[in-house]
């Protein structure tokens, strides 16, 4: 759980860094996308590793949930937890929403099936116009809202998950624990702001794409 979680956390950071290049304009963004695509087999190795990590993460989550339910067959009539957080108690729910989001997200931008009308344009250099695909997708408010909404469970999942992973791996002590807890919350919030800013910027017109104005 911890190891696969941290692997995906690493991806989330890298993916965010890449996505933020959208603010550098269409040229940079499309060049970055082309660079990624040109990695060829390395790209597939990375995809396989991530997919395996996701699979193991989901399978262990299911196993943990079943074992934990079995450990307390009769629940309490009254149960007042003192310190646990909303994020910690809803890891399964946020995880399910995120899995559904990943499926939609892949169909949208990787397989380009959900919005084909804006997904297969090319820029002046003949590269796939990823910038246009992203901006025009997010000009449709239901899409932008769905993406921003999906970042809420991501933020919650990470706010518990990051520090939890370090605790599970034993890389923590009572001096580091509060540091990790607060850092995890801070990082989760920054990741939310970073990711959600892109659909928000497209929807509000801060990032614009005009057809034919390609360099």
């Amino acid at each position: 759980m911890a190891v696969t979680g941290l692997m995906m956390f690493g991806f989330i950071l890298g993916h965010l860094a890449g996505n933020l290049l959208i603010y550098a304009g269409p040229d940079t963004f499309n060049a970055y996308a082309k660079k990624l695509q040109s990695l060829g087999e390395f790209l597939w190795v990375a995809r396989c590793i991530l997919l395996t990590a996701l699979l193991f993460h989901v399978l262990s989550a299911i196993q943990l949930t079943f074992e934990n339910r079995k450990a307390r067959p009769i629940g309490y009539r009254r149960y007042d937890p003192e310190v646990t957080t909303y994020a910690a108690r809803t890891m399964m729910l946020s995880g399910i929403i995120l899995t559904a989001f990943i499926v939609y997200h892949l169909l949208h931008f990787t397989f380009r099936l959900t919005h084909p009308e804006v997904s297969n344009l090319h820029d002046a250099r003949g590269n796939h116009h990823v910038y246009a695909m992203v901006v025009q997708s997010f000009r449709q408010w239901p899409v932008a809202v769905a993406y921003i909404a999906a970042m809420v469970p991501l933020c919650l999942h990470l706010s518990h998950g990051i520090s939890s992973a370090f605790q599970s791996l034993g890389l923590q002590n009572n001096r580091l624990l509060p540091v990790f807890k607060n850092a995890a919350r801070g990082i989760a919030l920054l990741i939310f702001v970073g990711y959600a800013s892109i659909p928000a910027a497209c929807l509000s017109g801060l990032i614009q794409y005009t057809a034919g104005r390609t360099p």
Binding site: N68, A71, E82, V83, Q167, S168, G170, N173, N174
Partner: peptide
């Protein structure tokens, strides 16, 4: 059951044993 790091144990412990012992054991 399994530990999913809620830290309820530490809060309930009458001897106030710190959950960092769990990290130490892990």
């Amino acid at each position: 059951g399994n530990c999913t790091n809620h830290f309820e144990c530490e809060a309930a412990c009458p001897k106030e044993i710190n959950a960092d012992f769990i990290a130490r054991m892990n």
